[in-house]
Design a protein around this nucleic acid. Structure first.
Lengths: 309, 309
DNA sequence: TGAGGACATAAGCTGGTCTTATGAGCGAGG
DNA sequence: CCTCGCTCATAAGACCAGCTTATGTCCTCA
């Protein structure tokens, strides 16, 4: 009876969706924060003022916190409202990235710019780039195909993609490339692991001697690690997705090695901690690739320049 | 009648909420990914199988992409579905952080653990810690009060908070402290800024000589920067919130100096780029604080240990 | 060949959110 | 001093999305 009503399950969480306002409400809150008026915010998101009023009110009831100070000449956020708005902004940004990705995924054919990307890049970086591209060139429709390096190369060489992104150690034959960023692999453990408390860095020998939670052989991450250790990484468990590896590491099964792109959230939330390592070059280049000779032009060139800042 | 059924992207955007599935649907998708069955996923989120089936189907219609392969003996994600699920996970995680924060904000008084935190910590780190705490001690109700260092000190000394978090250079009098993390300040510009393309790092002299977009004097970030430069930071614009500073920097108004906690998203999305700097110690300690003598115990001790991993 | 699991379809109910219409404070200007 | 213009609040009805129950189809396994 500590929780709400019909959640007899009593499990981890009684459905976030019932406790977190929906995206429309969060967007509305951001608009109120920016514009300082319920009515103006309502206009911006395309609803009427009473609807906005009611929606903000019901959000306040749901959260149990006053979010805005209403006055006859405008509405300002309360202190708590400012904090909630910042958290809301993060949710909305994640949703915008979701949307940018989904939009690219939808436009499978006949799009002006067809991008092929490896999974890690498609998952963690591309949505952000697509948002930036959309901001600069709203008319450019982008389509996205995801696969491993070989698949990306094949799509480019077959003329089914205009620009590719890969994260391997080598550039597939027949492609030109440009390094757009460097990714670092990080050794991580759950906070309770002995490595999390020792003072000195882990050495290459220790890392090679310790069974690790890893992606399967052939994955980009595994390739880099094997190369760095001289082909010696010992698997404790082999899993086929980054997500599964993370979940296993968080649960305390053992140390793992993952891209810093993949574990940013877990590190911030202290579900995982990064372990310093010495003597192991755990870096890899992230590259844009295109068929030799076909220098990117038009939207592809634009996207490429965005990725390099 | 809404005038916008044609989703043609001729405008900034036609409301995310209409193009991104709601949180319930995203949670359902995650459950399907994990359990490999619509029915099992439905059971987990507390709805019936037909409801789940319909909901996934309408999400696929909305996104225009097939997400799951249904078969008479279960459902597996398609390739696109796996990617969408990963993006969905990020939205759900942001929502979970929102919920953890809002929950703490709601329980203003009479909670078992009352935390006071500076804005940056409350905004970027605390929700994650609260999630972790909730996972380990689901019954502990936490309340949150946010303010600057002086406010945090006051709350602790008045007995109105059990544990505090501050980010200043000094520890307020009457408090004991422990360093829980180090925050790095980063020089950032919009991708188009000249600094984004030059090869060599910016020097302390250059930084001190360049007008910057900054928080107001007295903010923790500004204090650290002034100290690092010898009190010389020149403001181009002074703004009163980190969000406003970020927005201004993204728009290309000039270089800025911000906490790495605050700009992670912007860096990943390439809306901002980090500029290497040499000869300037842009680090600051993030500290947990408590009244001298009152060593944290119980839930406070638990939370403290989580923050240190 | 029949049991059981998994998903799809159909029909009806419910609740939340929208709309329009209207009222009520506060400030500015004729 | 009164009215206009801005703000937000309230009320009553329409509508739609999503839920439930009941049933049908397909596949696999014993």
């Amino acid at each position: 009876m500590s929780e709400e009503y019909a959640t007899d399950d009593g499990r981890p969480h009684g459905s976030l969706a019932h406790r977190v306002p929906d995206l429309g409400a969060l967007e509305l809150l951001l608009a109120v924060a920016r514009l300082g008026s319920l009515g103006a915010a309502a206009r911006e998101v395309g609803i009427t003022q009473p609807a906005a009023s009611s929606r903000i009110r019901s959000m306040e009831r749901q959260l149990g916190v006053a979010l805005v100070d209403r006055s006859p000449r405008g509405s300002r956020l309360t202190d708590a409202g400012a904090l909630v708005t910042d958290w809301a902004r993060r949710v909305v940004e994640a949703a915008a990235a979701f949307d940018a990705g989904a939009r690219a995924l939808r436009d499978r054919r006949d799009s002006r710019l067809r991008v092929a990307a490896s999974m890690t890049i498609a998952e963690y970086l591309l949505p952000g780039w697509l948002l930036a591209l959309h901001a600069e060139r709203p008319d450019t429709a982008v389509s996205l195909l995801a696969g491993n390096s070989a698949k990306v190369a094949e799509l480019l060489l077959d003329g089914e993609a205009d620009l590719g992104f890969v994260e391997g150690l080598t550039v597939p034959a027949g492609l030109d490339s440009a390094v757009i960023a460097r990714d670092r692999l990080i050794v991580v453990t759950a906070p309770g692991h002995p490595w999390a408390r020792r003072g000195r860095p882990v050495t290459a020998q220790e890392l090679a001697a310790t069974p690790l939670i890893l992606r399967e052989r052939g994955s980009g991450t595994r390739q880099v690690l094997d190369a760095a250790l001289g082909g010696l990484a010992r698997p404790l468990i082999e899993l086929s997705s980054t997500t599964a590896v993370k979940a296993s590491a968080v649960s305390g099964a053992g140390p793992s090695v993952l891209s810093e792109l993949a574990v940013g959230e877990e590190l911030a939330m202290r579900r995982l901690v990064g372990i310093p390592v010495e003597g192991v070059p755990l870096r890899r280049d992230l590259r844009a690739v295109w068929p030799t000779g076909h220098r990117p032009t038009g939207p592809a060139r634009e996207l490429l320049s965005l990725t390099r800042g």
